[in-house]
Every structure is written in C-alpha cells, then in structure tokens.
Design a binder for these strands. Structure first.
Length: 447
RNA sequence: GCCCUGGUGGUGUAGCCCGGCCUAUCAUACAGGACUGUCACUCCUGUGACUCGGGUUCAAAUCCCGGCCAGGGCGCCA
C-alpha cells in the first residue's frame, strides 16, 4: 500500500501512472505516464502548456509544436478545462518549468472531456459562495484547500481509532433505526418501518450503556447520527458524525476525562504527524497539546463574574458566556479545557448526580465551543427510574434499556465527540458545513 | 421557532441610500483571432445578468408589499 502510494497505482487492470509529486529532475529523460485533470491551458502559438492536476499536485505538460506530433498538438489544443486525460511522454528537467520538471507528451488520451463553462472555478481564483460550492461539491472538492479538510478528517479518525483500540476499546455498531428517543430533548426523524413508525438514531447513548452490562468493558463507535432540529446555524448539521466511548468500572467522571484527554492528544498527534502539508495549506495552527485543565461549573461562573459577566447558578451558559469564557481561558494559554460538575437539572436523566444539585458531568471546550460532552452514568436501576420520572419521561419507553440495569451493571461513564465541530474549530473553518463532504442541513438534501 | 440582512451574466462583484445620464461596472470564465517559455501569460474581437409576482411613478436594478431562495444571530445541542 505504502509502496503503491509512492509509485502511483500499477496493475493489469489499472492505467499505469505516476503521481505528479513523484516526478523529480533526476528522472530526466525517463518515459512517464501521468493522469489527471486539465487545470489550465496556455496557448502561445507554437508552444502550448497544460497544467495537469492529480492527487499529488500539479505538473506542467509542455508541447512545442515542432517537437510533438501534429495529432497530439491538436488534441491538446482542443481540450476543455477539467477534462481527464492520460499523458504519456518524456520527463524533462527544465529549470524554468514549475517544480523544475515538465512532460513532453508522445500521446494524450482523453478519458473524459469536461463540459463548459464550469459552474465554479476549481482553482479557487474566482471565489464562490458556500451555497454555490455545496451545489457543485464535486468540483469544489478539487480545490487542494478543500480536499485538505477531508485528508485531515481521515487522519483524525484513523488516529482516534488506533488510539482507542490500543487502550483496550472494541469498536461496535449500534442500531441506526430505533423505536423511541434515546434521551428526549432533540427532535427525531421518523422513518417508516414496515407497519410501524420508527426513528433515526440521534446518538448511541442508550445502546453503548447497555453494552456495559455485557462485559465488553470498553466500547467505542464512530458513526453518523441524525437530529431533526430546525436549527440553521454555522454550528449545526442535521446529519453529524461522532466518536462515542463508554467504559466500565470507573470511580467517577475524572476517569472519563482522562480517556477523553488521551484521545484528544492522540488525535492532535496524528494530525501533526500526517498532515503538515494540509495544515499549512489551510493556515491552521494546532492547539498546545499539554495537560487540559479541569474547571468546575461554579469556578467558571466565578471567572465570568470576575470579568463582569454575571450568571446565576443553574442558568445554562449562553453562547455569549461560553465564548467569553473561551477568551478568558485563551488569555491564560488554554485553548482546550474541561468544564465539569454541571447542575444536574441541565443534564440528561442518565447523568450521575454528585454533590448538591450537581452532576458528575463534563464538557470539553475548544476555543469557547463545546466539542465533547460526557459524564459518569447512573448504574443503579432504582435511581435511574427515579431520574427518568423526575425528567418527565415515561418509564415504559425505556424497558429494554432498564433491563440491562437489573442483572448486574458496573459503574460506568462515557462521552461523545462531534467530528465536524471539532474539525471546524481545529482548522478554523467558518462554517460546519465545510467539514462534511455532502452536508445535510435544514434546507439542503442534495447533493 | 424567533430576530436581522441580502438576491445583478457560468462564477465573484460595482451600481441601490439620494429613481432618469444604465444602451448596467470590473474581474474571471466562455467563443474566435495573434503569439515558441508561459507560470492568475499578454493583446484584439465577441457572447452573456438586474430572483419572481404585484404596486407607486411620466420613468424602477434603484422606492413599497408579498412569495421563493440565500447569509448571519439567538435558543438547543456535538
């Protein structure tokens, strides 16, 4: 695999090609085959340049009229921008060529010719609105800066997965189609399930907890979830991706924060190691991956108070307060920090109470925005039933879930991290839609 | 769900406040032409737009009302 990436793919059924970033001046005189999209064409009468873009970058194809066959010259002259071609020719080390190399073609095979005009400029020189970009997302994704977001996303998930597996977690997949709401609160998308109504999963919460009663001990799931909220902001998607973890035999939520912290560090390390080029392209700076401070909700209130921002206990932190706290922590050099011990009333029914009117819960904040939410969960049947009632939910709706707590459930806790949100903050994207390939929002169902 | 802003060629914009000199600006793209070292090539020629419906007015891209669409904020959350 690694070798294949270095050389370009080879094989009987594949078109032989080498990626543009593997072409070096030392290879002067060798015959090469490159394939990709015609990004630009410059005609200078008897001399014609093509800029060919592939996964590795852009390479110049040069056609001096007198050095190439008339047929090849005519083919090149007629090419429309963004057509897909295979160019076979001789590599030349030429100082005045971009990158110091160019290919003088012996043949140009047009695999697919592009229609024109293009609905947006794939080089990004002429800007396009996000809406236009998303309408023509395939062309938009040809821009290196846009593609870079998804290379980082892939590296991020890869790092998370290998870290968690290394920490003894097993990867699971819980149902996407559910019969009732997992936690109330958010709206669900109804789906028709034969003769019944069912819903798309909003989170794996109840299932990952049930798995704690099996002895799997530590599980994680990377999957998409669906929220029918009619919110329409730069922070929300109706289809989102999350990393969810749940682990058993914990003492309290501090143990869960330890795991969260380890995961975040591993993800940052993974990107740091694999995505230097992408980070540079996006102008993104990773946060310091030191010890992540843990402040309590009450301490957070005090800090806000000191900076002239008054909130009463129990009051949910507003977006503005959250942002302000992000600034305060940022001034102290912390872009990442936990807020823990939230008021119980602000948290879902399965959250373990702790202290007076408090809970054993936490959020991980990143630059003033919540990216992870977690807690120790209630593991006793009686307390759970009591809390379900106290939250105004119907115990009958949770029979299967509750059964898992009747025959031996260890103390446990976990968290969920929104990938798009995290990626957005990490890369400084201005809209969460940029972090999803084909985002689903209140009004967008296509492409 | 509530609040605010906007909609001009394929794309991105100027013009709108203060209606008429708009036969609508500029860039890029597209078509044709000239050019053998371009690198956002350059130069010449050309094609291409006022979101839709209604109203005010002698006159509407410009003012008013409504629809549709988009952008942003709040609430809620990841």
């Amino acid at each position: 695999m690694q070798e294949a990436l270095r050389q370009g793919w080879r094989g009987d059924t594949m078109i032989e090609r080498i990626y543009s970033d593997r072409l070096k001046p030392e290879m002067h005189g060798s015959r090469v085959s490159i394939a990709g999209w015609v990004q630009e064409k410059r005609k200078l009468g008897g001399l014609l340049f093509l800029l060919l873009r592939d996964r590795g970058g852009v390479v110049q194809v040069t056609l001096p009229k007198k050095q190439v066959s008339q047929e090849v010259f005519e083919t090149a002259k007629k090419l429309s921008r963004e057509s897909v071609v295979v160019v076979r020719g001789v590599l030349q080390a030429v100082e005045k060529a971009p990158g110091g190399v160019e290919v003088v073609p012996e043949s140009i095979e047009v695999l697919s010719s592009s229609a024109s005009p293009l609905p947006l400029d794939p080089t990004g020189r002429v800007p396009a609105n996000l809406d236009t970009r998303l309408d023509h997302r395939v062309l938009d994704l040809r821009k290196p800066q846009v593609a870079a977001i998804f290379r980082v996303r892939s590296a991020l998930l890869h790092a998370a997965r290998s870290h968690l597996l290394g920490e003894g977690f097993i990867e699971v997949h819980t149902p996407r189609i559910i019969s009732t709401a997992s936690e109330g609160g958010t709206e669900l998308f109804p789906v028709s399930y034969f003769e019944r109504e069912a819903f798309l999963a909003q989170s794996p919460q109840l299932y990952k907890q049930m798995l704690m009663a099996t002895g799997f001990d530590r599980v994680f799931e990377i999957a998409t979830y669906f929220r029918a909220e009619e919110h329409d902001t730069i922070w929300h998607l109706n289809e989102l991706t999350a990393i969810d973890c749940e682990l058993s035999f914990i003492s309290d939520h501090e143990d869960v924060m330890d795991v969260t912290e380890g995961l975040v560090h591993a993800m940052l390390r993974g990107i740091e190691e694999e995505c230097q080029k992408e980070l540079e392209l996006l102008g993104a700076e990773l946060p310091e991956a030191g010890k992540i401070p843990r402040i309590s909700y009450e301490e957070a209130l005090e800090m806000l108070e000191e900076h002239g921002f008054s909130l009463s206990f129990g009051e949910d932190m507003s977006t503005e307060a959250e942002k302000r706290l992000g600034e305060i922590m940022g001034e102290q050099g912390y872009e990442l920090y936990f807020i823990k011990d939230f008021p119980l009333e602000a948290k879902p029914f399965y959250t373990m109470p702790g202290g007076d009117k408090l809970s054993r819960s936490f959020d991980l904040e990143f630059r003033g925005r919540e990216v992870v939410s977690g807690s120790q969960r209630i593991h006793t049947h009686e307390l759970l039933v009591e809390r379900i009632k106290a939250c105004g939910l119907r115990v009958e709706n949770f029979q299967n879930y509750l059964e898992a707590f009747r025959y031996g459930m260890p103390p446990h806790g976990g968290f969920g991290m929104g990938i798009e949100r995290f990626l957005m903050l990490l890369l400084g994207l201005s809209n969460i839609r940029e972090a999803a390939l084909f985002p689903r929002d209140r009004f967008r169902l296509q492409p």
